[in-house]
Design a protein around this nucleic acid. Structure first.
Lengths: 213, 213
DNA sequence: CTAACGTTTGTCCAATCGGTCAAAATTTGC
DNA sequence: GCAAATTTTGACCGATTGGACAAACGTTAG
């Protein structure tokens, strides 16, 4: 290998691509359940089916794995909000945003937990991103929502806190999944819980945001 | 000290009481920001202003500190839900439950994060409690809410998911505080954010749960 | 086939971890 | 004031951690 693995021109081997993916998949599993400091390179290596030095050949430091994981995560994580569009019926837009977010909580719980872990610990590694890219995006979408309110299409309320509450309620089903299942019990805590949640959230947000008479 | 420090009759010295409190306070700070595995005894000892062996004189194992912390936490954490009562106006009851939960997120964010950390990692230490005490309590309160729905006092919806969404939205302001402040920015992310949140959540839940004409 | 390059492994290291222990310092009961 | 009990400390231990390294092993292009 004559070139550094990071940088503008990665130029990776077939094996490198495959193994890096394998490692990232394993690391997602380990990091999301143990947090960064709670996870060891050995754990990740074992989950990826390779030796520790072998893993360190593909990622020089433990932090590099986490960093790569976070970069990928954030791109896909904000996609649903990016799609929230001015065109189309406001309530329909919000409903499908909520639905997409809930689907992500169902289909990518590990990504949600990885993100939650990072924020819980003060977001030491992604703070600039939160204050920059994320804030810009949310401000933009909050203005879209404000426009809907001014036009009388949805009830007037705080758009930022509306977005927070959508994040909170949907991600709850990924981050607090153990608690949700424990409380719902064997009968209601099965696969159907996401459909129940979808029905409930739609009623809560959409009915609650309908313009008053 | 002739007696074990745990058990039915602790019988503690004045110094023991004080120092144990000091340690628990320091441990709450450290555990809530770094998680259990991410925290070291040295960190806690330094935060409590004592040496590591000295700390270990009061709590024999790191896990004992965490356990004591969790026991105390859970008692106070569920208090607001316990107070949710059948007597009194349903919407008023729910409104003050939401307000109390939001106040706890504001006043005890470390406790909220400690709990979130535990759940995120699969609740290894409190799983029986979730399936036992917590489930029983939630089921009981869900039935109270169901009664209100049958009586036509509030809109019909899923009581369990209603409780989840109240937990999620209120605790979000403690657990994801860094993100909330980053997104709201310097002007709106100050002390007023909890009042804004209270207003928003009241509108979301109370208006959304009003019985339909 | 072979030389260059890419991959894998075993071994090792310094730092940090949770925790022990005996001795020293302090507080407390009388 | 003094002896017994409690509290504090420094030194230490084995285990685990993230990571370095060179040697061995595969792969591939000419």
């Amino acid at each position: 290998m004559t070139d550094a693995m990071e940088g503008s021109a990665p130029r990776r081997t077939r094996i490198q691509q495959e193994k890096r993916e394998l490692i990232l998949e394993a690391a997602l599993e380990v990091f999301s359940t143990n947090g960064f400091r709670g996870s060891t390179i050995d754990q990740i290596a074992e989950a990826a089916g390779m030796s520790k030095p072998n893993l360190l050949y593909y990622f020089r430091r433990k932090e590099d794995i986490h960093e790569t994981l976070m970069e990928r995560l954030l791109a896909t994580w904000l996609a649903p909000l990016r799609e929230l569009d001015d065109i189309g019926d406001p309530l329909t837009e919000l409903r499908s945003y909520i639905r997409r977010k809930l689907e992500m909580a169902r289909d990518f719980p590990r990504e949600s937990r990885l993100f939650a872990n990072e924020i819980l610990q003060g977001a030491p590694r992604i703070m600039p991103l939160l204050e920059g890219e994320l804030k810009t995006l949310v401000d933009e979408k909050a203005n879209v929502i404000k426009g809907w309110m001014r036009a009388g299409k949805i009830a007037r309320t705080d758009p930022w806190h509306l977005i927070f509450s959508i994040w909170a309620t949907t991600q709850h089903y990924a981050d607090f999944d153990v608690q949700v299942r424990a409380v719902l019990g064997a009968d209601r805590g099965g696969d159907g819980r996401f459909e129940d949640a979808a029905r409930f959230l739609e009623q809560l947000f959409i009915d609650g945001l309908k313009p008053k008479g």
